[in-house]
Structure formats: structure tokens, C-alpha cells
């Protein structure tokens, strides 16, 4: 393969390896979450990010520590891609006191204020206006921060999407609208509820660039996000990036996802973003098989440590339920 034609040309090796690590971190983390759920250690429900790792990682690889993200009910991947501590994330998912939100948020509501993760909302589409507000704040404060707003195909049919894209465009706010189009909103196929094929086509209605990328190709996501982040940071306004992707699991904990045709699932499994990226990195000489395996081994170990930490951590005291309603009531 000639170097000119290589997929990774122009991206620093360190960035590539970091992205690979982050994607694997998400995958192994989610697999561990699934395992702990099976052991009845996780209350409530779960929405796993397995299969969509390239989206969060390709976008967040372009963000600085003080840039912001907003996240969704399927949010573990966004947190980890923004740099979240695996122990505190896992502990939150288990409802422990040592979790990011002291056990008050759980799987659907992880935030990390110190890393600019403004938190996951479980109301579909609700975080999109909040991302616009964070971007407005960046603009008013005159910083060069940007905001990445993650949401799914389902959210793109909520009114908030349309209000928010319009508002971001008129004020040229530094925000990336990242649509993770995994083809299904719960069990509803996007093509049954949306008359156009590409959600990114809606960008033109609001006067912003719309980009469609293979969301299972982290390099493609990275390059599209880089362009959008550069534009946002330099006052060029928002971008809508549609990442075509697929969740490997069902919508939530017990969903066997029978509404998806088996051959469709099979096709997408072949496009597993981590396998593809690993193959690319090895083919292009960024990593050897052995190095890639070693990274996997290390990450599996780190994730196991996070799980142990979470399992061993104490639950909050029941009366802590009464704390944090207000910063200060009186």
C-alpha cells in the first residue's frame, strides 16, 4: 500500500493509538457492565454503546479538556471518550457513593463537570438546546471553547432539534451537532418515521454545513469532526455531522432487538468499528498485532479494576437522597 493512499496519513501516531485505546476502553467497559448487569449488580436499565465507539472517540479526539459535551441515555461511550475516570463511571452505574453523581444519576445520567461533560439527559432531544446554551456561553465569554452535542436519529424528530439548530446557526455558535444514526429509535426504524434518507440533509434548512460519515470508521469521523471543530473555534459556526452506525445490542437491557432483520445485523457486525480500526492500524504499520493485543490486555485489566472498585464501594446513606436539591435553599 502506498503511503499517499493510506487511511491514516496526516494523523499523528499518538492520536491514532489514543483513539484505539479509547474505543477499546469503551468496548471492554460496556462488556463488563453487561456482565455485572447479568450478575444483578446494576439496578434499573442500561443502554450500551457497543458498536458506536468510533463516533464518540472520533469526535472527542478533537476536543480539549475544557471543551464541552452533552450526552444521552446511551452515554457511557461519550463519558469515556471525553476522558472520564472508569472507576467513578462504573461506580455511578452501580449506584454507589463513589460514583460521579454519588449514586443520584446512574447509567443514564453521568456527568463530569471538571472534564466539560455537562451530563447525559434521558429525555430524548433535551440536551440539544443545552448544548446551544453552552456554546452561547463560550461565545459571550470570548473563549475558544467548542461544544459537541451527541444525540440519536430519534432525537432529530423532536422539536428541540429544530429550534436548537436554527438558534445555533443564526448566532454562529461553536457547536457540533453529532447525530448517531443507528437506524432505530428504540424499535422504530428511522426510515418509517423520517421521509428523507439522510438527517444531515436537514442542515441546509438551517444554513449550516451537513456532513454524512461512516460512523463505524473512526478515521472518517475524526476528519469530519476536526474540520467542524476548527470551523467552530474560528467563529465559523455550527455543523451537523450524521454518523451512520449501528448498536450491536438491543435498545435497553432486555431488548432482544427482534425488529432488526438478521442479515442486516450480520452486515453491520462485519463493519465492527474496532475490528476495522485495528486492521487499519496494523496494515498501515501503526501497531503490530502484538502491540494491539497488549493494549487490549492492559485495558481489560483497567476495566476489571474499575469493576472491582465499583463493586466494593459503599452505597450512599439513604438520607443522602435529601441532599443536593438546591445549591442553597435559603
Amino acid at each position: 500500500m502506498s503511503m499517499q493512499a493510506s487511511k491514516t496519513t496526516g494523523i499523528e501516531k499518538e492520536t491514532l493509538v489514543t483513539m484505539y485505546r479509547k474505543m477499546l476502553e469503551i468496548r471492554r467497559f460496556e462488556e463488563k457492565v453487561w456482565h455485572l448487569f447479568g450478575r444483578n449488580l446494576i439496578p434499573g436499565t442500561l443502554h450500551l454503546y457497543i458498536g458506536e465507539e468510533a463516533v464518540a472517540v472520533g469526535v472527542c479526539a478533537n476536543l480539549k479538556i475544557d471543551d464541552y459535551i452533552t450526552s444521552t441515555h446511551r452515554g457511557h461511550g461519550h463519558c469515556i471518550a471525553k476522558g472520564a475516570d472508569l472507576k467513578k463511571t462504573m461506580a455511578e452505574i452501580l449506584g454507589k457513593k463513589t460514583g460521579y453523581c454519588k449514586g443520584k444519576g446512574g447509567s443514564m445520567h453521568v456527568a463530569d463537570a471538571a472534564l466539560g461533560n455537562l451530563g447525559a439527559t434521558a429525555v430524548v432531544g433535551s440536551a440539544i438546546p443545552i448544548a446551544v446554551g453552552a456554546a452561547l456561553s463560550c461565545q459571550l465569554r470570548g473563549t475558544k471553547q467548542v461544544v459537541a452535542c451527541f444525540f440519536g436519529d430519534g432525537a432529530s424528530n423532536n422539536g428541540t432539534f429544530h429550534e436548537a439548530l436554527n438558534m445555533a446557526a443564526i448566532w454562529r455558535l461553536p457547536v457540533l451537532f453529532v447525530c448517531e444514526n443507528n437506524l432505530y429509535a428504540m424499535g422504530t426504524r428511522i426510515s418509517n418515521v423520517t421521509a428523507i434518507e439522510n438527517i444531515a440533509d436537514r442542515a441546509s434548512a438551517y444554513g449550516m454545513p451537513g456532513v454524512i460519515v461512516d460512523g463505524n470508521d473512526v478515521i472518517e469521523v475524526y476528519r469530519a469532526a476536526k474540520e467542524a471543530v476548527d470551523r467552530a473555534r474560528n467563529g465559523g459556526g455550527p455543523t451537523l455531522i450524521e454518523c451512520k452506525t449501528y448498536r450491536h445490542k438491543g435498545h435497553s437491557r432486555f431488548d432482544p432487538a427482534k425488529y432488526r432483520p438478521p442479515d442486516e445485523v450480520e452486515e453491520w457486525m462485519k463493519k465492527d468499528p474496532i475490528l476495522r480500526f485495528r486492521n487499519t492500524l496494523i496494515e498501515e504499520g501503526v501497531l503490530t498485532e502484538k502491540q494491539a493485543d497488549e493494549i487490549d490486555r492492559q485495558i481489560t485489566e483497567t476495566v476489571e479494576e474499575a469493576a472491582q472498585f465499583a463493586v466494593k464501594s459503599p452505597y450512599p446513606q439513604p438520607e443522602e437522597a435529601l441532599e443536593d436539591v438546591f445549591v442553597k435553599l435559603r
Binding site: G99, Y100, C101, K102, G103, K104, G105, H109, A111, D112, A113, A114, L118, G119, E323, D324, V325, F326, V327
Partner: peptide
């Protein structure tokens, strides 16, 4: 937001 995120924000 203040409550759900454990007082972080």
C-alpha cells in the same frame, strides 16, 4: 441538573 449529577453542576 444539580441533584441528578450529584451537585457537580
Amino acid at each position: 441538573i444539580h441533584y441528578m449529577f450529584g451537585g457537580q453542576l
